[in-house]
Each structure stands twice: as C-alpha cells, then as structure tokens.
Design a protein around this nucleic acid. Sequence first.
DNA 1: CGCAAGTCGTGAAACGTTTCATGGAGCATC
DNA 2: GATGCTCCATGAAACGTTTCACGACTTGCG
Lengths: 344, 344
Amino acid sequence: MASANIKQVAQHAGVSLGTVSNVLNRPDLVSPATRQRVLDSIATLGYVRNDSARQLRAGRSRTVAIVVLDVSNPFFTDVVRGAEAVVEEAGGMLVVCNSGEDADRETRHLDMLEEQRVQGLLITPVSDGRHPRLDAFVAHGIPVVLVDRGSGHPSRCSVAVDDITGGRLAADHLADHGHRRILYVGGPMTIRQVADRHAGAAAALTERADGVRFDVHETPTLSVAAGRQAADDLVALPASRRPTAVFCANDLLALGVLQGLTAHGLRVPHDIALVGYDDIEFAAAAAVPLSSVRQPREQLGRTAAQLLLEESGGSAKHSHRHVVFQPELVIRASSARERKRARS
Amino acid sequence: MASANIKQVAQHAGVSLGTVSNVLNRPDLVSPATRQRVLDSIATLGYVRNDSARQLRAGRSRTVAIVVLDVSNPFFTDVVRGAEAVVEEAGGMLVVCNSGEDADRETRHLDMLEEQRVQGLLITPVSDGRHPRLDAFVAHGIPVVLVDRGSGHPSRCSVAVDDITGGRLAADHLADHGHRRILYVGGPMTIRQVADRHAGAAAALTERADGVRFDVHETPTLSVAAGRQAADDLVALPASRRPTAVFCANDLLALGVLQGLTAHGLRVPHDIALVGYDDIEFAAAAAVPLSSVRQPREQLGRTAAQLLLEESGGSAKHSHRHVVFQPELVIRASSARERKRARS
DNA sequence: CGCAAGTCGTGAAACGTTTCATGGAGCATC
DNA sequence: GATGCTCCATGAAACGTTTCACGACTTGCG
C-alpha cells in the first residue's frame, strides 16, 4: 500500500541511504555495478520519489503555475499551450488554475500556490490595478509574470499585445477600402483591451483626416448573443445612416453580428464589411470567413514562461522586462471586397 | 527573502512551536489570548505555511489532478470546470495537465503526479486499453477515475456518456421527420465515441424497419476542414442519390458541412437537414443554428470528482462505480423543418 | 614498501511541519 | 492539605529527502 522509501531501497540493495540518493541525483558519482544494483532494487520495490520531502529539503519546486481568467476561452487555452511547451522543456510542470474572473477564487488559488512554494507564477489578474497579493510572492522570492495586464510594473516582468495598434490596423484597413461610416462594437469599455482597441481605431481614423465617421455601440458582454443584439439595433437604422463597416472588439461579437445581419438579409461584406479580433479558430470557419486581428497567443505564453524561468534561474542580474507583441491583421472574405466608392 | 517558519513565529509570540501549530490546526485547543498573540505574530512576520513539510508529515495532499487530452477542446474545458467546482468546495485544489493526445507527455505528467502523491487522479487516457501506469497509482493508494473511457474496469471508477443512445436519438429524430436517406459523417472509426455514435444510429434505423438508407462517410479527423471536404463530396453526388439528412460525429464536422453546403448553394435544412454532436457553444451560434446531441459535460466532471473524493475519503467500503450519463437531443433550425415527405 | 591522489560509499544533520505523551497551573472536593 | 480534574502549553519524535564532511579502500609512483 504505502510506497517504499529510499531507506528500504538502500536496505534491499545493501547500500547506504546516501548512495541511493546519489544514484538518483548524481549517478556519475556511483560505480556502475552499485548503480545497477540500486536501480534494480528501485524497480523491484516500485519505489517512487517523494516530492514533498525533496522539495522540503531542496527548498524549491519544479512547478510553475498559471492562473487564467477563463479556462474555456480559446485565447487562454492557447497561452497555456505556449507556456506549457517552455516549462516542460525545462523539465518542469505547468499547473493551470482558473480564477473564473472571480477575485475570491483567485485569492484562494494564490494562497495555495504560495504555500506550495511554486517556482513561479504566470497570471492574468482579475483586477487590473496594483495587486498586493502578488507583492507577497515577489517578497518571498517567487517571480511573477503578468500576462496581458499591467505592463510597466517596476518589480515584475510582463507580456502583452499592443491593442492600440490592433485597433489601428482594423480601422485603417476598413478606411483604405473606402468605408466612410464605421462602427465599433464592443464592451464593457472598462476592460482595458476593449478600450484600447477602440482608442487605436479612433486615433488612426483621426489621423487620416479624411472625414470618416466613427461611432461606438457599447455591448454588455463580449459574447455571440451580444453581437446578434447589436446587429438587430444596426439593422433598425435607416440605410442612409447605417455604417458600411463594423469593427468588433472580439470574434465572438463579430460572429454574432454576422449571424444577425444575415438573418435580416444583409450581405457581408457586400452591404456591410466586418472585422473581428482574436482570430479564433472559428473565425476562418464562419459562414463568411471573418477578417480578424490575430494575436500571437502561444507566443505570449512561451515568452511569459521564458521570462519567468530566466528570473527564477537566479542570475541575479535579471532585470524586469515588459514585452509587447504586435498583432497582425488577417484579411478574409468578410472585408475583402473592394467597395465601389460611396453608395454602391 | 526566505519566508519565516513556524519556529520564528513561536519565538516572536513567546510560545512553543507546538502551540503555533495548534493555532493553525486546532484553534480551539488554545486559549483565546495566546491564539491572538500568535495570529498577530503570524501577520507581522508574514508567515506562510510550507505545504511540502505539511504534506511530508501528514502523508497526503489536497491536490487533485486532471489529465485531459486537449485543453483547448470545449468538451474538456467544461469537464474541468465541473470537477473544479467539486474539488474546491471540498477545500482542495485542482490542477489541470494537458497530454495533448501524446502518450509520452501523458507518461511524464503521471510520473510527476505520482511523485507529488496527489490525492487523486481524473484522467482521459490517450490510449483506451488497459493502462499499467494507472495500476501503479491504485497500488500506491491513489484513486483513479476514468473520464469518458474504459468503462467497466473493475478496480477503478469511471464516468462516461452513452454514445450509443446519442446516436439513436439523432437517427430517430431524422427518421421521424421523414428522412429516408441519411448519411453519417465522422471518423476515424477507431475512436470509440465515433464508432458508438454510428452504431447507435444504425441500430435505431434497423429497428424501425422502415427502409431508411444509412450510409457512412468516414473522415480522417473531427475538424471543421474535414466537414467541408465531406460536403464537397456530397454535393458531387447526383441529387437522386444525395442524402436528405446528415448526422455528424461532432459539431466541428457539422459546422464544416454546413459551410460547405451553403457555399454550393444548398440550403439547410430545406435541402439537407443536419444534426451534430456535443452541442458546443458555437452550435447555437452557427449561421443556421445547429441541432446537436448534448452531453452533460460539467456534470461529467462533477461526478468524476465526487467519485474520487468519496474513494479517497477512505471509507473502506467504497465500491467502484461506473456512471453512465444519457445525452439529450437539442433541436434547432438545422433539422427543425418538417419535410414534405419524399422528394419535395 | 610507503605515500599521495583518487574513487566510492557512509552516516548524520537539516529542511518545516504535525502529533502525542507529558507536565504544570489553577481549582473544586473531600 | 492532599487528591483528582480540567485546561493549556511544551518539547521531542517522525515524515523522506538531499547534502556534505569524512573515512575506507584502491591505485600509481617513487
């Protein structure tokens, strides 16, 4: 029942306890004959290292934790995959915790992770501001890397994607195609990403100074349902005031808008062009393949993990860095067609 | 830098080490005055329990692990959420590991989890057969619950969904609506779920004995792309031999088929009715909302976690159970319209 | 043969907890 | 004033590792 321990292995192999440990950790210090004998004993007894004891003694763990806002959001699952690849290559293990955008659950997770003395922490915190809990980690020598939040904090690394540029890309693309009435659909504006994407688009259109009208339709959530609702409102407008292009804060909204418009007999992109954000897998697979702003999600996770391992590697000369990735516009059918100037 | 330990707290509070431990674990054994003094010291020193030491001494951990085939598959993310809820309510912590359908990674994860002496393991193994690694867990007293795999194993609990019934539901629904040429799209057939869904549909149609023709189009994967390819093949058939309804092994395929048919000018459900499987979030949100067989995914995770905790609770009289859930057909526009009998 | 250098293996200490038998106050009872 | 209680607090043992100073044995060389 209870697993064998190192002492029993030593006894079985007729060596001392320290020797078994050497076989496990510095095999070259042990003569081949003894080593083999010990390995055989390990096999016969089905010995498995006790990681608690090892950690207790060694003082550090090989697990890295990532706390995400929503495990079922494709954005985070890709970030996780990226981080996972790096951590596993370094011989560690990544555990995924889900805060579900709930501050209490986040706190509970952080408590447990702190008790476990994890090697490091990747986190997208629920609240965007200063986060005292995280300072405790840093104070205990556990490095923290912020993912897609709070860039610029002096005592932590962070990785993020430039949402302002993302907004510019989408807006410029639509304006380049001759659109002069563009609508931004997204919300709530309190989410930094939603606000930044809007700000970027607004800035780009202002700079062009070619008289594009840019409105906002604020949604309560970033869901497909909210997008459908937005489409209903949009269709109700008289055609003369209706936008000719819509830029959505994420792809779920865009898919909802697409469905809503189609249901009312409006064609995308002929009547209204559409650009989403995130380039989720279903964007390419939509009824009309969706143009979208792609974020390097896996890359985000990989880089975050690399920064973390570098910091935890303990080279004292680590300086905190804030890596910002640039998004990329993927043009598909939903916005591809050249508009025939003004009213077609 | 290094965190304070229980000894320093004891010293600071002017009590013995054992008393601090009592404050932490059995506060009622300590007089209120002392207790408060200790708590104050804990706060000033920023003491955090060392979980390795605690586990080492206590012999067991409070973390439950779940190993899934693909963290980015909506099916598994929902299972995870269900399991999470139960584990956290019991004061434990769920860690998610991703095998990515790769047997090597699965093995590496299992190795680490075994070393960590996790409280229990929920797993959908990469390979469906007997799995010797898992026996090692059971031998070490770590309970294992299989998720959506290998029902009926005598020394483990399992949870699963009845895919045969799921297949029947879909097939009966289509036949009830007058369809007499039905096509099953899915593959590879070596995946148990794919085969079971087909078998269920075939059985149901045979039992009806009303002359429905049932064909199979085997796909290489369960992806959107494979569905689109299947639609192309289907459109190439002369209309007289073309099925009037398609049942897909999962929703990704169904979405692909839907796109492919639409691209060729065939209307769903007017020309061809469509039923998917899984009822993923995008099924309801598709260009034509998709009928689909819904699996109780969160419930699956919750039940798996409950069985695990029950077994690990150590009531020696635990008997291994195999819980099988029944799926449910969700009817939406893609199959809703009554066919006007035979050729319309 | 004797000595230095190397190669292997040993045993004890330490990591930070939890647990448990022990002990000392304080207090009522006889 | 001894006895038996209850109530708190104590200190040592134990959990399973890793690490490290040290000792025993071999080998090479003068």
